[in-house]
Amino acid sequence: MTERTVPATLADLEQRAEAARERPGYGQDALVVCDRLVRIFTAEGVEVQALQGLDLLIGHGELTALVGASGSGKSTLLNILAGLDVPTAGAARVGGHDLLAMDAASRLRYRREVVGFVRQETSRNLLPYLTAEQNVLLPMQLAGRRTRRRERTARARELLDLLGVGHCRDRLPRHMSGGEQQRTAIAVALANSPSLLLADEPTGELDSSGAEQVLASLRTANEELGTTVVVVTHDAAVASSVRRAIAVRNGRAASEVVLRSEVDEHGAERVVTQEYATVDRAGRLQLPRGFTETLGIAERVRLALRPDHIAVHPDRVADRPDRVTDRPGGSGDD
């Protein structure tokens, strides 16, 4: 697949540069853009590569789940997106803020206005000596925007009602159930109208009904307020109820499952899940383990370009290059 190089004139080069500039850049209208994100932890001589060049695009208003086994790097990614950690290499942009190049003041502004965070442990989301309403008021007060107290209180009540915990307004956290606490935590995270809401395993400590309530709240936040929501979870129920679930494996985004509703032959609406493999900017692709083990794919595969798909063939023993007569990239199997 070689191209023939044609000597270029200066005008040609200028035209090409202008075309490249006007082409939309990577992640132009996405809210969250991660470009080859790397995070390495060093402790006592041991190096751990939590993220190994992760590419991720999340658009405005999406409700996305990040799934993966423990140690796959999803919590690290969330911490970076929340502004609580700084990546070692790569680029990460959230709503126009460059997460690598923030000083203390801009980081503070980012935490206040752009992102909201909900943790797994309910005790770390709420101050135990403030009521639910006071907990929601706190971020507004800390942000210092010039809103009047009445407006703030109204907004707090509105948020709590929206998420279904209006009746817990004047209760202390220890008088609320786990589900109510997490929903209050979501209201707290939404207090300053962030563009992005991050939830780190919010249903981890809850039973199924509580988890259901929390999911419903996240969906409400996403649909009513238009907040982009990213949920990190390894709960299959959560993963199957969001529109898009990105699987993170070995520090990289490996595959996605997207829900799409389509109309079938009888005219009824149907929700179909479709699983995709993520392709990063360099064109790399992670093959699912099930596929590679079934076909015995080890080090190399052969690719063939067809009119509407790419064929991936395992490297058969018979096609080993020690047989000189065969051409490399040779005959397909079908």
Partner: peptide
């Protein structure tokens, strides 16, 4: 966007703290 500090807001911080501990 310059972070402005809040005056005494609606959260009764002192009262809540004294009651809590």
């Amino acid at each position: 966007a310059r972070p402005r500090e809040a005056g005494p807001g609606a959260v009764p911080w002192i009262r809540a703290r004294l009651r809590a501990a």
